[in-house]
Design a protein around this nucleic acid. Structure first.
Lengths: 134, 134
DNA sequence: TTAATAATAGGAACTATTACTAATTTACTC
DNA sequence: GAGTAAATTAGTAATAGTTCCTATTATTAA
């Protein structure tokens, strides 16, 4: 996997810059239309491929909420997200650790929270064994 | 929205029972094939529609991880999920509050955790206003 | 029992995403 | 710098997951 200093193709650079320069948590489509303003011939496939790669490179984050397309976030600092189940907007939550009580987050954001999703991702014991062997 | 005591159609009842009777966090497809064993003529559309409805009724939960189809969980008790990024399996985490340190969860599960997703869902201030007016 | 309502099976349609391919760009070597 | 290999692209076709549509069937209420 390429490091943070690897030179990126023009298209990849543009995609990264677009995702980084907004707090709107854009979808792939959003990124595509913004990119077209600078590079009218860029293709959707290129946008998707680069979003995927940048995400694997650890330079942007994917945000998946149910029933909506994947969104992307260029802010790699530790923070969480809150979505309005009515209008679908996604906003950042900062300055609070995951330990913050839901009450506190409600006060901070003025949202009426009804669901908390907490998910961990990692490598399970069996797969850890497998990768040691191979 | 119907309550917990509303009588469900046979198909809806079956879908609910299948999701409840496993800890495998099945996909819609999984549910469909299990359902066919009891009701060979049940259709995919029916399975999807009922999963969606049951989820909206608050009788089952949806689990969305990136790059994989939606999974369903009939266990409505407070608990969290952990996915292996290698093999994709999803397991439950119980007995720990969201406050549990990642370290503790690693010890408990033997996973090597590399990502924590925390998401809140609720209704934003603007939408709260809107629903008061209408 | 009839009329209204809800739910179904089956299949078509849709949306988000990925895969394919020929052409282009970039990087590497002499 | 020219030649060659490797990476990336644009454009398009294909796919997977999910939702929608329609005619039919089941359920409920009067």
């Amino acid at each position: 996997m390429e490091g943070h200093n690897t030179k990126l193709s023009k298209q990849r650079e543009l995609v990264l810059q677009i995702v980084r320069s907004t707090k709107m948590h854009p979808t792939a489509e959003d990124v595509y239309y913004k990119a077209k303003k600078t590079m009218p011939r860029i293709s959707m496939g290129t946008v998707y491929r680069n979003l995927r790669l940048l995400s694997k490179m650890g330079r942007i984050k994917e945000i998946n909420f149910p029933d909506s397309p994947t969104r992307f976030d260029g802010d790699m600092r530790d923070h969480y997200h809150i979505r309005c189940s009515e209008c679908g907007r996604i906003e950042d939550i900062s300055h609070f650790s995951p330990r913050a009580a839901v009450d506190e987050i409600e006060k901070l954001t003025m949202y009426q929270i009804h669901t908390v999703h907490i998910k961990y991702e990692g490598i399970c014991p069996e797969c850890q064994k497998k990768s040691k062997i191979s």
